[in-house]
């Protein structure tokens, strides 16, 4: 491993720790970091451990999931404009979630978790349908087929959401708020719910880091290098969809993270997926923690939807890096 990569990991780790520190400390009440282990001030201790910490961790996990899924999808589809939402999985999750609000569904026993669980089921169903359909069209699942299939399903599911929005009266604000994304007031159960998906999905993607590298040169060359292209594609699509579906189900559709973070990471540290995936994971977490912090503090006590902040921060940063890169 060379020096640059070590620096890359160290700086990303430091950025993440600093983000967590800022995320738990700053807010309507300033909480010193020492409260983490020091429970002498009980109210501060409670704020930190029951409100701030789960919120920061949830933001971090959602950001990490979207970023690593985006990096893997961009690599797999060989398209820098791909993001975790390209395959339509997020629209599936959204339909599940919006339907929950629209029909005021509440499944017994899981009550408050009806929305994220239906969201995940929506994501899962969409993934299965998209993959099956793409495979029906063309057995080798060319990249263009996948992208087009994703576009078709996204727009169809998008119309379903629009229809529900058009027909709704009272729940409009709730639906819009969910669609714009938020990690507030979720608490530990949501963190626990997303963790297994993040762990399994990320490990699955990371196992295919070398295959992603080989597939940069096209399916045929990858095959000749000994890559089981079909299996790798499935694994990466399933891993990425799992992460995306889980993230959308718990926090709504938060844009830009999955597109910008892998891009920035690649520009800074190179396109080698052996490192790109993990670095995107770390940087995605940091970015979303900071965005969430901004969203709840900038015009406090009003909270701006986090998706607005990611776009506000993401777009200019992205443009600047893009500009610098092209001018070289």
């Amino acid at each position: 491993m060379n020096k640059t990569i070590i620096i890359a990991y160290i700086s990303s780790m430091v950025a993440l720790l600093v983000s967590i520190w800022l995320g738990v400390s700053i807010g309507s009440v300033d909480v010193p970091f020492s409260t983490l282990w020091d429970d002498t001030n009980e109210s501060l201790y409670n704020i930190l451990w029951t409100i701030r910490m789960p919120r920061v961790l949830l933001a971090g996990l959602v950001g990490a999931s979207l970023a690593i899924a985006g990096a893997a999808f961009q690599g797999l589809l060989k398209n820098p404009l791909a993001d975790p939402y390209t395959l339509g999985v997020s629209s599936g999750a959204s339909v599940g979630a919006v339907a929950t609000i629209f029909f005021s569904i509440s499944i017994p026993f899981i009550s408050t978790f009806t929305l994220p669980i239906l969201g995940m089921i929506g994501a899962l169903l969409t993934m299965v349908i998209v993959l099956t359909f793409a495979r029906l069209i063309d057995r080798s699942m060319k990249m263009e087929t996948l992208i087009l299939t994703g576009v078709i399903f996204s727009s169809f599911l998008g119309s379903c959401i629009s229809l529900m929005i058009a027909l709704t009266g009272d729940q409009l604000r709730e639906i819009m708020g969910w669609l714009l994304g938020s990690v507030s007031m979720r608490g530990w159960p949501y963190v626990k719910m997303i963790v297994p998906f993040v762990v399994i999905g990320s490990i699955l993607l990371w196992l295919y880091r070398r295959e992603l590298n080989a597939m940069m040169y096209g399916d045929e060359r990858a095959m000749s290098l000994g890559v089981n292209v079909k299996r790798s594609k499935y694994a990466i699509l399933i891993g990425g969809s799992m992460l995306t579906g889980a993230a959308v189900a718990v926090s709504g559709t938060i844009g830009f993270v999955g597109l910008v973070v892998p891009h920035m990471t690649r520009m800074l540290w190179g396109a080698d997926h052996r490192h790109l995936l993990l670095l995107s994971f770390l940087n995605g977490a940091s970015l979303l923690i900071i965005c969430d912090l901004v969203s709840r503090t900038i015009i406090a006590p009003i909270e701006i939807p986090i998706g607005v902040i990611t776009a506000f921060i993401g777009a200019p940063v992205f443009s600047y890096i893009f500009y610098k890169q092209r001018r070289k």
């Binding site: 398209n79 045929e220 060359r221 000749s224 190179g270 396109a271």
Partner: peptide
């Protein structure tokens, strides 16, 4: 056996 199809570049910039 190595197969080298006609390649034009990688999807992302690599050294």
């Amino acid at each position: 056996m190595t197969v080298l199809p006609q390649l034009h570049g990688a999807a992302f910039s690599s050294t």
